[in-house]
Design a protein around this nucleic acid. Structure first.
Lengths: 204, 204
DNA sequence: AAAGGTTAAATTGTATACAAAATTATCTAA
DNA sequence: TTAGATAATTTTGTATACAATTTAACCTTT
């Protein structure tokens, strides 16, 4: 296997620094500093920053600090796209996809912190995949980094009923109830949003 | 006013070359060639290409050639996001926004080719704006270039009922009928899609 | 002639130097 | 002191050189 190129490495390193809090919200990024930090030249760093700007993690040279409004906006888009995806899942999903969803729900009940984090992400990922719509998948993926920031809090603070909701969604999909699957997914995301907003606002 | 930077110029030049057919679907792009063509160095050209890749106009160094499936996918996302936007418009839109929408419909009836093109684009643009959701607006804008490619054919071949549909949507918004506005917008986009697909497939 | 391998050419990736622009600090006049 | 101008510094934008990689061309060998 060939080793990753500098752009890719830079991208991943900077992204991770942001996601795990080594680079704080509002902190200003300079190409030169990152370059010497990571041991690359400015060229690949610039590309990486462009990509992060595109994903919304960096906004004019500053690490993003999402406002309540941003959060609501992101979740609104998710509700529309993932709601539709859930409907698709209830209509199209294969036996294999169903099995994997069931597995994610199961891990959610008994897994370790990291396993749960992972399973929850996969649960949503699989449902989005069943839409079979690359543009839709792409749009969600681009919001993924920011979403990740919040999924972490939701799991860490152990939001009540999260797994139960996943299970309900899974059941609707398995039972081929498109309308219900969509509705449940939307409600589920709405609750995630409320939980995040509540947490954020009680911390400051 | 300060003159645009090389990246911005390159971006616009290359994009326009693609949109007006100077660069054909499937044609392969090389940085060096574009650089000497446009009289810049490779550096800004690379950035411009990256941006066009993000927008989906270039896919691994080739000018994109959207398939039927791509077209369906884009329109599906638009139906979800613009449908929701129409609902918002029917709920929130200001008197000024309503007036501008009415104006777009009017131009659609009597304007010149270029005016109609412009008015149709603005019609959709305004409705999307009323959502007040930056993420949503952003997502649509990123698909704008590809959408443009098709809007051109729709107007050029003078799709029947296009203006009437805009008017119906406008009326629903003005009369504050969110459900209806959403439904009409979705139907409208569905018809645009069918028209595009029909044209494309009858040409090849 | 076809499969495979080797060399050559084209293209992209990265580093670096310098120019342009933006930012910050410093100074001066009111 | 402070508003505004000017200089110093930092940071970004662009060009260019060279390295790495990919792609194309050209031989062999069967």
């Amino acid at each position: 296997m060939d080793k990753k190129k500098a752009v890719q490495q830079s991208y991943e390193l900077v992204r991770d620094k942001i996601l795990n809090g080594q680079l704080l919200s509002g902190e200003k990024i300079t190409e030169e500093k990152l370059a010497t930090d990571l041991g690359f030249s400015r060229t690949p760093i610039r590309d990486a920053i462009k990509r992060l700007e595109y994903e919304g993690l960096i906004i004019n040279k500053k690490v993003v600090k999402p406002t309540d409004k941003d959060l609501r906006n992101i979740f609104q888009v998710r509700m529309l796209l993932e709601g539709y995806s859930a409907r698709c899942a209830a209509t199209y999903s294969s036996a294999e996809q169903l099995a994997t969803l069931a597995e994610c729900v199961e891990i959610g009940k008994n897994g370790s912190y990291d396993e749960i984090m992972d399973a929850n992400e996969r649960f949503h990922q699989i449902i989005v995949q069943t839409s079979g719509n690359d543009k839709l998948i792409d749009t969600i993926n681009r919001m993924q980094s920011i979403i990740y920031l919040f999924r972490k809090t939701v799991v860490f603070y152990n939001r009540p009923f999260l797994i139960e909701e996943h299970e309900d969604i899974y059941n609707a999909i398995r039972d081929r109830l498109p309308e219900r699957a969509e509705e449940l997914m939307k409600q589920h995301l709405e609750k995630d949003l409320d939980f995040c907003l509540h947490l954020i606002n009680s911390q400051n």
